[in-house]
């Protein structure tokens, strides 16, 4: 009973704040509306006893949204939404596609005869995940790690304005000329 009430509350929060992302005029509000949506989904996972994954969702997504807010402020004109304006293209078409796909997906969710539950959750759900990724799903995780590494390298190459020759000059052993020096005086 309490769980059901909580679920409805969280589900409505997730959907409403998710929609608010594209409705509010302030970028900061949009970003943190998305964060609220993620926190609500994280809490739904807690209701499903997925403690670890629920908390990880909250952790990762709030962190990500906070960083996103900085990019928003950097790149968007009018990030505070103080000036009335709209930044849409093809709003009606997008709405049609969205509503159409919702009808199809929701009908599928309600009409497809989903399989019965097989087995029960183990006592330690986090242990199950840990043994999963270190056991049968090891290959997945092994694949993800080079992807993550490639992301780090790739995003730095794309985003950084200066390479190491810009920083150090031809002789890479001398101290870097950075606009703001780091704490170690290297």
């Amino acid at each position: 009973m309490v769980v059901d009430a909580l679920f409805w509350l969280l589900a409505l929060t997730a959907v409403a704040s998710g929609f608010a992302v594209f409705r509010v005029s302030s970028m900061a509000r949009a970003t943190f509306a998305l964060a609220v949506s993620f926190v609500a989904v994280g809490a739904v996972m807690l209701l499903l006893d997925l403690d670890y994954l629920g908390l990880i969702t909250v952790l990762m997504m709030v962190m990500e949204m906070s960083i996103m807010a900085v990019f928003m402020i950097m790149y968007m004109m009018n990030p505070g939404g103080l000036m009335p304006m709209s930044m849409y293209h093809n709003k009606a078409g997008a709405m049609t596609v969205a509503v159409g796909s919702f009808v199809v997906l929701a009908a599928g969710a309600l009409l497809v005869p989903w399989p019965e539950r097989e087995g029960v959750a183990p006592a330690d759900i986090t242990l199950q995940l840990g043994e999963g990724i270190m056991g049968s799903k090891m290959l997945v995780m092994l694949t993800i790690s080079p992807v993550l590494f490639a992301t780090i390298v790739g995003s730095l190459v794309l985003a950084a304005p200066r390479g190491r020759y810009d920083r150090f000059g031809d002789d890479l052993d001398q101290p870097a000329s950075d606009p703001v020096p780091g704490g170690l005086g290297r």
């Binding site: 959907v15 949506s37 989904v41 739904v44 919702f102 969710a109």
Partner: peptide
Amino acid sequence: VLASALFCIGIY
């Protein structure tokens, strides 16, 4: 249904 709602708002 919640998942589809979130997904479709994302599409929009």
